[in-house]
């Protein structure tokens, strides 16, 4: 049997190696996360507070949707059971979804959407920086493309946190409330699940301690400019990455999967 290093690096038709195949649940988790966040952002389409921001949110939703599709397609390949991107997105139940809890939280007002986006962008951007120089070529290629988009996302959401924090009394009150409600979901992002721990031990997934530090530093900088306080001593919720979700995900999936569930097995 050939060892991995003797295999052609990027033969598209070649079956994934055993090492690569282990990545399946992680790639699926990234796919679910990007899809759920894209879905939430797309709910704003046509209802944004300013036409320009309606456009921006649709744009960011499209980036996440594109990223989700790349991950799903790769996940389908890694799994090797003939499932497609749509099978993975539309025919799995809430308990099979692996996104962290943060991204499934409802849009709320614009402040909630911004804070949710900001927290995730801080993680996402720094994660992609690591993945793009990681050991898996396909994941690195997706990250390379997505990190350019993520750099714009983190700029956009950081600027809005600053505007809302250092804007009017009302915007400050709203953004503080959003932080108060969402902060408990921020810890899960950098708390590795059992699956992630195993992959980290194998060197396939980056260490989250460094990412957590980079996130914290960015958040501290932005909050300072926004004249907002970083919450302390908050009890952190988790479970999404193991399929234990908040009640919101079921409704989201009912809508997302409606057509595929109502008319099984058809082409659209």
């Amino acid at each position: 049997m050939m060892t991995d290093s003797t295999m052609p690096a990027q033969a598209p038709a070649a079956a994934p190696s055993e090492t690569q195949a282990q990545l399946f649940p992680f790639v699926l988790q990234l796919a679910d996360t990007s899809l759920i966040l894209a879905h939430r952002l797309s709910e704003w389409c046509g209802h944004g507070p300013i036409l320009e921001q309606d456009l921006a949110m649709a744009n960011i939703a499209l980036d996440f949707l594109g990223e989700a599709r790349s991950y799903y397609q790769y996940a389908a390949e890694l799994e090797g059971k003939g499932r497609t991107e749509d099978d993975l997105a539309y025919l799995r139940s809430a308990v099979e979804y692996r996104n962290p809890l943060l991204v499934e939280q409802p849009n709320g007002d614009f402040a909630v959407t911004i804070v949710r986006q900001f927290i995730y962008d801080c993680f996402h951007y720094h994660l992609l920086l690591q993945l793009k120089s990681g050991p898996d070529a396909q994941l690195a290629a997706i990250a390379e493309k997505s990190v350019k988009e993520a750099a714009y996302h983190i700029k956009w959401s950081s600027e809005w946190v600053i505007r809302l924090g250092d804007g009017t009394e009302e915007s400050r009150r709203r953004v503080e409330k959003a932080i108060g409600n969402l902060w408990r979901y921020s810890g899960e992002l950098t708390t590795p699940s059992a699956t992630e721990q195993a992959l980290q031990a194998a060197g396939l997934v980056p260490d989250y301690a460094a990412i957590q530090q980079q996130m914290a530093a960015h958040i501290a900088r932005v909050f300072e400019e926004a004249t907002l306080a970083v919450p302390e001593g908050v009890f952190m919720q988790k479970g999404g990455k193991d399929g234990r979700h908040t009640e919101h995900l079921g409704y989201l999936l009912a809508e997302l999967q409606y057509m595929q569930r109502t008319y099984p097995g058809l082409e659209w």
Binding site: C45, G46, D54, L65, L256
Partner: peptide
């Protein structure tokens, strides 16, 4: 005009269709 089509973005039947529809409605905002 973004609203009647926006009504189906969250229910589009495939990821490809969802992406095309969202891009289309975004064009309308543009």
């Amino acid at each position: 005009g973004m609203l009647p089509e926006g009504n189906w973005i969250t229910r589009a039947p495939s990821l490809k269709r969802k992406s095309i529809l969202l891009a289309k409605v975004q064009d309308e905002a543009g």
